[in-house]
């Protein structure tokens, strides 16, 4: 197992209890320094894939290695931005409170010190939200909230950044700016982001991980109309073997 592989998935299958499988026989390698977008239709298993990387759910079969170890043991090296829909929008917290949560796990106790606050402010600066540090989290717009949650993930000092739909509910020009921020961050860390918009994402990222029960990786340059149609068109994935695939390639029916 090479050290430069951040994530390795071997023959992973996953199903929620008594439902048909969401992911079947998935093989995937994410190399260090990659900037990839995870795309696929609704319910195809994009978020499930992220949760497997994080060890929040366990695969029914197969093996996952994150930084050469189990997902649970590698968690603290991962910065995760969830979709904010599950958060309570009346919760009394400031932007600073939320970002500081990323510092938990780096300190032993439950207290924050000056260096934590400095780290939180610089994370806010990276997403251009310093002016809002003292604002209430629930008074922000959708796009601002997403940037705060990215700052919280950055505050973890991660080697791998996982972002779940960071571009939803965001104006195009802010999306553009956010991608520039992410490109800058990509110099220090691997970035995987879930996206619902394949066309735009492919201009910025190095590769696209297509999920629809099975998983296929395409370098950005290979993306064309046929592939997009295949992803959104039916439940059959494009079969295309490239260097990232497993030894036997993919088998689909």
């Amino acid at each position: 197992m090479s050290v430069s592989n951040d994530i390795v998935l071997n023959n992973i299958s996953f199903a929620y209890a008594s439902a048909k499988p969401i992911l079947e026989d998935v093989n995937l390698i994410v190399k260090h320094g990659e900037f990839a977008s995870i795309v696929g239709p609704n319910g195809s298993g994009k978020t499930t894939l992220l949760k497997l990387f994080l060890g929040l759910i366990k695969p029914n079969t197969g093996e996952i290695l994150v930084f050469g170890d189990t997902p649970e043991n590698s968690r603290l090296k991962i910065g995760y931005m969830p979709q904010y829909a599950h958060l309570d929008m009346q919760f009394p917290v400031t932007v600073m409170d939320v970002v500081l949560m990323g510092r938990l796990g780096l300190n032993r106790g439950s207290r924050f010190f000056k260096n934590d606050r400095i780290a939180a402010m610089s994370a806010l600066e990276e997403v251009k939200m310093t002016d809002f540090a003292k604002h209430l989290f629930n008074e922000l717009s959708g796009g601002q909230r997403q940037r705060v949650l990215i700052a919280r993930a950055l505050c973890c000092e991660p080697e791998l950044l996982l972002l779940d739909e960071p571009m939803s509910n965001i104006d195009p020009e802010i999306e553009e700016a956010l991608f520039e921020i992410l490109q800058g961050l990509n110099k220090r860390m691997t970035i995987l982001l879930v996206s619902h918009d394949l066309g735009f994402v492919s201009q910025k990222v190095n590769s696209v991980i297509c999920v629809n029960r099975c998983v296929v990786v395409h370098p950005t340059s290979e993306i064309n109309g046929t592939i997009i149609k295949d992803i959104y068109g039916g439940d059959i994935c494009m079969i295309r073997h490239d260097h990232r695939c497993g030894e036997e390639g993919h088998q689909h029916d």
Partner: peptide, 12 residues
């Protein structure tokens, strides 16, 4: 209380 999933990921 705010986000128990994220708290878990931070080793809590």
């Amino acid at each position: 209380c705010f986000d128990d999933e994220f708290a878990r990921l931070r080793g809590i």
